[in-house]
């Protein structure tokens, strides 16, 4: 993963694609869809086991959004938050359990361990926030928000948008990337000097895997929470 030759890239229609990202992203998407699809088969008034899990998840993500977005505005963002949380969670955990490398090149790992993926979602969130602001307040009111508390605040407001984009994307990337990196290093250590290092490395690896699983869940939660905060910032008129 560390050196440039560790990922296979290919060109298609003038765009550069990263094979590892495409494959593991597809796996994550399919996993999320299958999970939701399987749990939503028998929807009844009296919820069954699967429906209960799904309803709890919906309530959970709606709860995250309700924490920052004013109550009656949540409806439109509920689906975005739900999908985002599930996808990020599955992506974060994917690399902890399956890492496939063929010929020194990664093919399956956490999609979120590549900044290009997390930045994509970060951009998506900020675009949604801008869109929501314009849709609710209108163009004039929305963009006049950048001039508050006074006109010369404009550069700082724009810079703030940029840092929001960067921190949102890089936070989750950093945690997941470093987690996988350390897992790999411990893995290399295990096979470096035969049985002796393996005995030391296995509990270490298990411990770090558990910690990373926890971090992955936290990061998915944080990402959705911050998305809700950025969206709600654009929904309110600053005084």
């Amino acid at each position: 993963m560390g050196d440039p030759s560790s990922v296979a890239t290919f060109q298609f229609g003038g765009l550069t694609f990263n094979a590892a990202n495409i494959i593991s992203g597809l796996i994550a998407f399919v996993l999320v869809f299958l999970f939701v699809f399987a749990l939503s088969r028998h929807i009844t008034m009296k919820p069954g086991r699967g429906q209960n899990v799904l309803e709890w998840l919906v309530d959970f993500t709606n709860g995250i959004l309700k924490g920052s977005i004013p109550g009656n505005e949540v409806g439109g963002f509920g689906l975005y938050g739900f999908t985002l949380f599930l996808f990020l969670f599955v992506s974060n955990e994917l690399g902890l359990f399956i890492q496939v490398a063929v010929g020194g090149k990664d093919f399956v790992r956490s999609p979120t361990s590549d900044p290009i993926v997390t930045m994509t979602f970060s951009v998506a969130t900020l675009m949604l926030a801008q869109y929501a602001g314009v849709a609710k307040l209108g163009w004039k009111k929305h963009f006049s928000g950048y001039l508050k508390p006074f006109v010369f605040w404009l550069p700082i407001s724009i810079f703030e948008e940029f840092t929001n984009f960067l921190t949102l994307g890089l936070r989750i990337f950093g945690v997941i990337y470093s987690g996988e990196m350390l897992l790999k290093i411990i893995g290399n250590l295990a096979f470096s000097h035969g049985i002796a290092t393996m005995i030391v490395a296995v509990p270490l690896e298990m411990f770090w895997q558990g910690f990373s699983a926890f971090l992955g869940a936290i990061q998915a939660f944080v990402f959705v929470t911050l998305s809700a905060v950025y969206i709600s910032n654009k929904l309110e008129v600053e005084e």
């Binding site: 890239t9 298609f12 229609g13 765009l15 550069t16 694609f17 990263n18 990202n21 495409i22 992203g25 597809l26 998407f29 999320v32 869809f33 689906l79 975005y80 999908t83 996808f87 999609p111 590549d114 290009i116 993926v117 930045m119 994509t120 979602f121 951009v123 998506a124």
Partner: peptide, 17 residues
Amino acid sequence: LATGDMIFFAVCFILLM
């Protein structure tokens, strides 16, 4: 920049949603 990845993830995410 692996711009293809961005488009791929954006499209897939919208599709998944």
